[in-house]
Design a protein around this nucleic acid. Structure first.
Lengths: 203, 203
DNA sequence: ACCTGAACACCGTTCAAGT
DNA sequence: ACCTGAACACCGTTCAAGT
């Protein structure tokens, strides 16, 4: 059952993060308890305090991992379609929602208000910043090619981000269960909404 | 300090909801405790169970109030601009984000994953449904006038909802503190993003 | 009907102590 | 350095009891 892995070797921090991810998936962000995480990792309930100042710090590290996945995905998409900023934005959106659907509890942790994001969590903040900068780059790639109407980069980026983020949050909150169900349908929906934002809803 | 209001008269339920709203604003959705709510209302910590099956039921009622505010706002906007569905959609979006900014903790409770939305909470579900139907009506008003491109009503509505919802969630999560600050700026931003969705980002 | 106090199992955090 | 067990103040929920 419980292999006596030598956590004393310094990988307890990682073991705790892994256990945290597992419990986050299982119980959701509101139910996750530090004591359960410790139990799952096979240590006493005070051991985590050697590696995290408090429960908040553990949650913050889990959220950070989520932001890093987001930043990586953005970079990847940019590299995959080097001369097609329109495709970059569309595929970036798809990746964003896919990640949210794959890690709904982490998404809720990142954006849902369970964990208050503070300036002091520099690493968390930086990971988030990196993801946003990837998006800004993709938008300014498009601007350089004269793709978009004459607008502030920030505003164009925020439009794309809001659209995709809104869909992601609605899906993870289970608000769209009647409308959008399968994974395939979600991808189709992001693509379709992306097209609407690019060409407009009006006739 | 504590006026001996006769809660025995049947308004304890309301007093608890009020105390809940107050503590929700003060401490955020994650920190709200049933015992604190009871204390704030001046009753023993077991008294709430006379009116709510459990803590979840209280939170659900608070979220429901939020959905009702949303549904009301949507209806109001529709009546205010009876023959201008384009304006209805734009002002509806502004109202949506305004409500989110005004009640950030309630918004997080409604959509953030602290409270798992279940089918069984029929009243909560209905309030949410009513809000969404208001949006659908506004979109189909526009379709009747031939305003929009030929698309599924649901898809057009979801595009508008996602855009506005995403912005609202980003603002309430404090993710846009560097970019969008004042209340006035938020209104300007919604309007601007709404225009982008209507006419498209592309040249 | 409406409310209480004791009780239980849980939680986050601190601290003195052990290797 | 790294981990533990006892302790404290809190929590959600149940239950017998009081008016």
């Amino acid at each position: 059952m419980k292999t006596t892995t030598p956590y004393h070797h310094g990988d307890l921090r990682n073991a705790l993060l892994q256990a945290g991810e597992r419990l986050l998936r299982q119980d959701g962000p509101a139910e996750l308890s530090l004591r359960k995480v410790a139990r799952e990792a096979g240590v006493s309930h005070t051991a985590p305090y050697r590696h995290f100042r408090n429960k908040r710090a553990l949650l913050s590290a889990l959220a950070q991992a989520g932001f890093e996945r987001l930043a990586d995905a953005t970079l990847e998409v940019e590299n995959k379609y080097p001369d097609d900023p329109r495709r970059q934005l569309l595929e970036g959106g798809v990746a964003y929602v896919r990640l949210a659907v794959r890690y709904p509890e982490t998404t809720q942790l990142m954006f849902g208000g369970v964990l208050e994001i503070r300036e002091e969590d520099t690493e968390l903040h930086e990971a988030g910043h990196r993801a946003f900068e990837g998006l800004l780059k993709i938008v300014s790639n498009g601007q350089r090619e004269g793709l978009y109407r004459d607008r502030d980069t920030m505003e164009l980026a925020l439009a794309a981000w809001s659209l995709v983020h809104g869909l992601a949050m609605l899906v993870t909150a289970g608000q769209l269960k009647d409308t959008v169900t399968s994974n395939k349908e979600i991808t189709r929906m992001v693509t379709s909404l992306g097209e609407l934002l690019q060409n407009g809803m009006l006739k």
